[in-house]
Structure formats: C-alpha cells, structure tokens
Design a protein around this nucleic acid. Structure first.
Lengths: 150, 150
DNA sequence: TTTATATCCTATTAAAATAGTAGTATATTT
DNA sequence: AAATATACTACTATTTTAATAGGATATAAA
C-alpha cells in the first residue's frame, strides 16, 4: 500500500491540473476542503512537492499553488515516488527504496525476487504512462458512462 | 509493500515444498536457520498458517511442519493474503482489505480508483498464477543460467 | 518411565512508520 | 495597517509491524 500522503498528493495535484489551462491557482484551504484532506497535513505535502519542483506557489493574500508542468507530463509514478510511496512489494526489487535481503545469499538466484520484479514492472508500466491529464479524462468518461446508464 | 511476515511465509513454505515429494517435514528451528528468519517469529507465522489449513504439523520430538497441498496448488497470492499482506496500492481497490474512501463521494466515478484497479489486476494476475512449485522451478533455471555464464 | 525435543499458545514489548498538529515567521494584496 | 496566505520547524499521537518470553502440551527414543 502507498501512504495516504501519496494519495492526498495525487488528489491535490489533480485539483490543480483542473485549473491549469486557465493559469489559475488554488489555496491550500480550498483544496483541503474540496478533497477532504486535513489542512495542515496537505500543507506539509504541498510544501514538499514545491521543494521538489513539481508545483510552485505564490505567497500572501490571494496566493496559492499551481502546477509547474503540463498535466500531461506529470505521471502517477512520479508523484507516488516523490511522496515516499514504494511501488514494489518487497524492498529488494524497489528502485527507490531498495534494501538488500538479509536472507538471500544471491538475489539473482532468488525465484521470488524474479517474480516480484515482474509485478513491479507491470505496476510501473501502468503508473508511469498515466498522467494527471489522463486521470481527468478518465473521470469525464466515467461520468458520461454513468449518465447514459444510471 | 507486503509485510516481512508474508515474505518469511513464502520462504518457509518454499522450504517445505522442496521436501514435499519425499513426504518429509521440517522443524521450525531448521527452517529458521536455513532461511535466516527469527525463530520465534517464524513459529508464530507457521502456527497461523496451520490454523488456516495451509500446513499441518507433528508435535513432539522429531516433529515439524509439512505442506497439506501440493506445491503446484499453493499460490503466492494466497500466501500473501493469508499473512495479512495487501496486494492493492490503496484500500478502496483491495479485495481483502477494502476500506471506503472518505473523500470520494462516488468511487465508481474516481479516475484514480480505476487506474489502481488496473494495477491490482496486473499484480494479482502474476501472483495468482505463480505457485511454490513455479518458484522452485525458476530458481533451478536461474542457477543453470548462472552456471553457463558465470 | 524418564529425558530430550518439538510444537502450541497467550501475552507482552520494542521499534518504526505514518498521520496529523501547533505555532510562529514571512510575504502579498487590498 | 489589516487580512490572508504560504514557509518552516518542531513536536506528538497513533497505528502497525516485528520480535520475544515463557510455560503448557505432545511425542519419540533411550
């Protein structure tokens, strides 16, 4: 499982993506309310994303956060990783949270290692081809579908 | 990430699978040493797997654990699930650890939900077609390969 | 029948990760 | 100047996971 932190980040960035074309920004408070994320927690998450260059902010009255890149270019895998969420199921096959197995003398000879690598590749394949823009598009499609057959 | 508990379980059951055809059993102590798993922790894990019917045990001197089913029939997904490891990345798409999203009014309309479902399906597809026997086979192949090109 | 060896079982503790909060400083707009 | 918003540091609380302790029970072999 990825931490709530990562999920909150995806939700918040999606909200920012929705106002991207109008060059608008959103305040922490408004995102927190809209997405039902604890305000102070969201503040910490956005601050971190800012320091990593994924978003930028404007201080002071009428300030807020906005995306630096186009929603097409921001992939779920990137968001998950930069908020500390490992995608792999075990540490010895994680790209960003790698840890050697204490019990494996040779991990190249470990069958479980090999299978877990395949799982990771399958997951990353999906998450690194899905952008914030894709997420929004999917939601539009789901909404249309539900309106046709209610 | 799945808990260490799940990984230890897979390692221990694989050890039991290796002696299955000879109708042999292994003691907790010997598995713990061989797989470098803390003995008492392994004891708790095997006890639970026994209560779920995945393994059986023989008490007393020269006792130990053995598989109840053929290694072909024991799938990684089953082991992970019964040792508390969720395969899904977020609770709202987990089969066995499902939790409703507080923030989603309609999860059928959530784009992230849809993507995470795909990730889960891809992972489960691999994990539920891979058995303990497959794991052993993979290791044999990896070993052969490494001996050819050392 | 005694001794050694193993599992059974419950309870407890330790450590780490995660989630969330507090409070003050700083910047910007009106 | 007042109101509003982010910046930043530090802290706390909660939960989960990992691991251990220790005695009860069963079995085999000496």
């Amino acid at each position: 499982m990825i931490p709530k932190r990562s999920k909150y980040a995806i939700k918040a960035l999606t909200a920012l993506a929705k106002v991207y074309r109008d060059k608008q920004h959103l305040s922490i408070a408004s995102i927190a309310e809209q997405e039902r994320i604890p305000r102070k927690f969201l503040e910490a998450i956005l601050l971190q994303l800012r320091n990593e260059g994924m978003v930028n902010s404007k201080m002071g009255a009428n300030g807020g956060y906005f995306l630096v890149k186009h929603p097409d270019e921001i992939m779920l895998s990137t968001i998950i990783r930069s908020t500390g969420g490992p995608i792999a199921l075990i540490p010895c096959v994680s790209l960003n949270f790698y840890e050697e197995c204490v019990e494996c003398p040779h991990e190249e000879l470990c069958g479980l290692h090999e299978v877990m690598l395949e799982v990771r590749e399958a997951s990353i394949h999906i998450l690194s081809k899905t952008s914030l823009a894709d997420l929004i598009l999917r939601e539009k499609k789901l909404l249309r579908k539900s309106e046709k057959r209610p």
